[in-house]
Design a protein around this nucleic acid. Structure first.
Lengths: 203, 203, 203, 203
DNA sequence: GATGAATGAGAATTCATTCAT
DNA sequence: AATGAATGAATTCTCATTCAT
């Protein structure tokens, strides 16, 4: 299945109904997980009949995919916005710290949802493809924003990708893992420091 | 459920039967995923009856948990072994490169299995706990091995944890993602370089 | 349901719309079978809305019934026409052979449609009734045409009915069954011969 | 699907359970038709759980196929038996008349079942294949029995096949159609006469 | 007359787990 | 300890028909 297969309703009312279904799906997937949520429940939560769901979505996973998109965009938009509003010169360390704070907050808002999406990204091709696409877009955007502020490291794409992975890991660690012996403030400092070094390195 | 709930058979024949079930489960989970494998299939693959499975395991997930453990140990033992055989002084960069090569190979051998486990680690508490425990053990072991070779950075646990995350991300990226615009050799070099810098940094 | 329940539109535009629906239905039933065709598809194929279908037809089966009628008439009209154009004296054997050829061709044109209709004639009373009615009409017409050419066997109705059944079976056999050990040329000859004998027999 | 795919239970209890399911299916298909009978009902009627049905049958159609076989054999065995008990010389006309009587009786016993099967034979490949196979077997058996009594017409297979078709049509006509203007006694006589002529004809 | 979104009952099938043997 | 037949709840998706617009 391709994301573009999902029908795009043209009428305003339909658009809203579709949105309602996605929201209902997101809510339930977040609360109980994908496999423990059935379409009837989603329909009920959305206040529609079970049948109509399949007018808007190819199948249950279609709802999930839309929810993933909506979620990902909701998370990333503020980040982009705040970066694009930066005025040079700025302190990279400080920026990264703010960035991490923002991400942690987002994760905190919908832990289970995020976990479910990651889980699905490991087993479902469509979800994996979307995540892939999302990572690429994000990486590209960040590299461009960096250029605009005069930060042009060698191997920019690779470095940004690595840095994003580190930050994602860190947030994940802080929000979920609770390795008790780990000092999260220290970790954050180390991550920021490593990222700054990597990005600053012109080889 | 707790891992210790799983009954430990004392008889030799029983131990082997249990092992067979775990192996069968691992094979099928790897090939088809957790949700697409049913207990009857596992029993058949293991050459036992469906009923007996529940003498050895509390439920289907119990088999999965044991399979995860077996898998994780199979992956990590060679790594530990090779590190412990190191003779000082050694080249950290080279070591990390070998380490990464070995991990990529392991991932390659059982991609689906690994993916399934990660997926489950996001949704199932028992699996998450095991991963957590595994990470702690690994981190501790590595920190100790490092000390034995005279590498004693500040914030050792945090640094090792971050480094492990970076390496895991890298391997994952290389084995599965195939972001086409990414140069994996460059990425590898950057990761190794960042890790070396981080670990070498005495603050 | 009775065929006469189906509303007869008086307006020209309506008549054409109804015809279009029947044609769309016939096409799809032929291609995919009655049970695998849904009314939405029929409406779409006909270029009308799903709702309007129920202005013209009591239900889905109503469309099927009309399609059956249209089909039956399309098949039988050429046969009647060619018979009525006969000039006495004519060779009965030759006539039957031509007749059979024509029927085989018709069957070939819409195998699935024909099969679907037969299938429905076995389980649906309305369809059965229509087939019954159609058989009676055909029998009557043929008996009359025979009389006009001086062929007046005893038990004419029964004989014609039996002969029609034989010919129908033959065509069916040739078009669908493919019993491999059967020589269809021989079969055709035997059927013609049996029919000729039966009809010629004045008792 | 192939008939041989259906699992053959080895245990006596299993065989009986399978038989029960087939009988329940046959009963319900007969009463309400294939499409109006669901597996839950069949299971209930058979006194088993819905799940177990799928231990014995690949799917719902599997039950139907078994029922068709059981039915066909139940119908044809007495016919074969009575023919094989014949002592030459015998009166062909009389034999055919008895044969027809017997068939009509069989049809009468399970009209709906028979109709359902015919209907399915038109739309389902597996059912069609079974009918095809059944017809071949029957034709072969009859040709052989005829030979044993010294009846060896030219084109025996074709003639027998045609005759069987005529008789089947006749029975069908008598049992279901009720074309009111048709005299069934006359029809029967005509069919018997036509068959006798065809079979007696040595060309 | 016309639209097409909406309904919601319905149905086949699966499968973790149990239990009589 | 071992078997594997049996359970039956649970779930996704379909579709003839209706009805608000």
């Amino acid at each position: 299945m391709n994301i573009s297969d999902i029908r795009e309703p043209k009428q305003q009312r339909s658009i809203e109904k579709k949105k309602k279904i996605v929201e209902a799906g997101f809510k339930l997937f977040s609360e109980k997980g994908y496999h423990n949520t059935n379409t009837a429940e989603i329909a009920k939560e959305a206040g529609v009949s079970t049948g109509i769901v399949y007018n808007y979505f190819k199948d249950k996973k279609g709802i999930f995919l839309m929810a993933v998109q909506a979620y990902a965009e909701r998370i990333i938009q503020p980040v982009f916005k705040s970066i694009s509003e930066l005025r040079s010169p700025f302190d990279l360390t400080e920026l990264l710290e703010k960035f991490i704070e923002a991400l942690i907050e987002s994760h905190d808002l919908s832990r289970t949802a995020h976990e479910e999406m990651l889980a699905m990204s490991h087993t479902d091709e469509d979800v994996r493809n979307y995540f892939c696409y999302f990572e690429e877009t994000t990486t590209n955007t960040i590299v461009k924003l960096m250029e605009q502020h005069g930060i042009k490291p060698a191997n920019a794409y690779e470095k940004v990708h690595i840095a994003m992975g580190m930050i994602e890991n860190l947030c994940h660690e802080i929000v979920y893992h609770k390795h008790e012996y780990m000092n999260y403030e220290v970790m954050k400092k180390e991550v920021v420091s490593a990222v700054v070094k990597m990005v600053s390195d012109q080889h």
